[in-house]
Design a protein around this nucleic acid. Structure first.
Lengths: 128, 128
DNA sequence: CATTTATTGCGAATAAGTTGCAATAATACA
DNA sequence: TGTATTATTGCAACTTATTCGCAATAAATG
């Protein structure tokens, strides 16, 4: 199952690389210049996740969001970080805030999905 | 919009009260003795959440799970806590582990949804 | 250039959750 | 205790996110 390079793959990866926010399939489809099928976008994203190039966030709305962030490049340092969902501008971003936890004996953690929801700094300021 | 007491409401509340795990609508429907419509269960659960009797967790599977836990009784102390999703026994439970975070300036947090996924203590031991 | 097979598009399927509407039943009050 | 008010319920239909089967397309390899 060797991976192949396709325009689709490149386009999605570019978009994610240049985005400061985590993107949903929906958002990706809208922002792409080229028309790519919904199912294809999901498949490309799922492959990225399998290959650990991208991480997946599930927000309180139950939707999946995808992000590449600088911290992902040094996973030893900050394996899991908080995400922030802004209800005002409806975006999700990676925070430079590590997730610290100490689970009770016997629990084995394989992954963490931590999302804080509220108003981001941009939108908080916009009020004043 | 005063709340009324109904058998449905009581049954769901009882189930949640006696459950050590967070339950999905699906699980609730199955565990109930009486047959209650899917939509009704959701409406009852949503009302519980509005009234702060129950809290809602969204897991990595994108599904909603509902729980009453002791910590919820003293929300000042431990407002947010981690949840644990066990892939082995397919359950979600509240951990007595508080969520600590320090968001950057300007961010306003309204809620937190933090789920750790892996193998719970029961299932970890089951291997040996 | 030909072969292999990963990738794509399409349509349909699945699953979670919500909504409109009419019927039912819990509460308040005469 | 009977009646009016309206919260709650069941049903069916709808929405939205995500996946899947399948045939067609197009990377990679040699």
């Amino acid at each position: 199952m060797n991976r192949r390079n396709t325009p689709t793959k490149e386009a999605v990866l570019n978009l994610l690389s240049n985005s400061k926010k985590a993107l949903s399939q929906d958002a990706i489809e809208k922002q792409l210049d080229i028309k790519i099928n919904r199912a294809t976008i999901y498949r490309v994203l799922n492959r990225f996740c399998e290959d650990d190039m991208v991480h997946r966030i599930v927000a309180e709305d139950g939707k999946q969001y995808f992000a590449i962030c600088k911290k992902c490049e040094k996973p030893e340092d900050v394996q899991y970080h908080f995400h922030f969902r802004c209800l005002s501008c409806d975006t999700i971003e990676c925070l430079q805030v590590p997730v610290n936890y100490a689970v009770p004996n016997g629990y084995q953690v394989q992954s963490a999905n931590c999302v804080l929801t509220g108003t981001c700094s941009d939108c908080s300021q916009a009020v004043g």
